[in-house]
């Protein structure tokens, strides 16, 4: 099944990015396709490559990058939400791309399910 995912909160502040990541991983392990993860609201902060978590903590951003590299998951950051919050091409982590809100609507149309994680 094709599943689209939406993430609406930033990393570390709220559990939603962790929940979304673990859901994506389990879906892929179960043989489903995560066709796109769309980052909106403060969720765009998942895409900054400037993050430096302590050594003994998970690296939320790097985890998303790895998911994109290993499973071809399309990580899309909303441009309008990103500009508001200072996420631009220069600080965008590997595996993410910046695009419009239309990508969310398109994902909802093309996927069999859209699962939203947020606060």
């Amino acid at each position: 099944m094709k599943i689209g995912v939406m993430v609406n909160e930033g990393p570390y502040q709220h559990q939603s990015s962790d929940s979304a990541y673990l859901f994506c991983k389990a879906a892929i392990e179960s043989g489903h396709q995560i066709e796109r993860v769309f980052f909106y609201h403060d969720g765009v902060n998942n895409a900054t490559k400037l993050t430096e978590p302590p050594q003994d903590d998970r690296n939320v951003v790097a985890r998303w990058t790895k998911l994109a590299e290993e499973h071809g998951v399309d990580l899309v950051v909303c441009v309008a939400a990103a500009l508001r919050r200072g996420i631009v091409e220069q600080n965008l982590a590997q595996g993410f791309r910046i695009s419009g809100l239309g990508q969310l609507v398109e994902s909802a149309i093309q996927s069999d399910r859209l699962v939203v994680f947020g606060d």
Binding site: H41, A80, G102, L104, V105, E106
Partner: peptide
């Protein structure tokens, strides 16, 4: 919080997709 405002932005974009 910003959810109402940014939510409305999604609604406006969705109009372009003939849904």
């Amino acid at each position: 919080s910003v959810y109402a405002l940014e939510g409305l932005e999604v609604v406006l974009i969705s109009a372009a997709f003939d849904q």
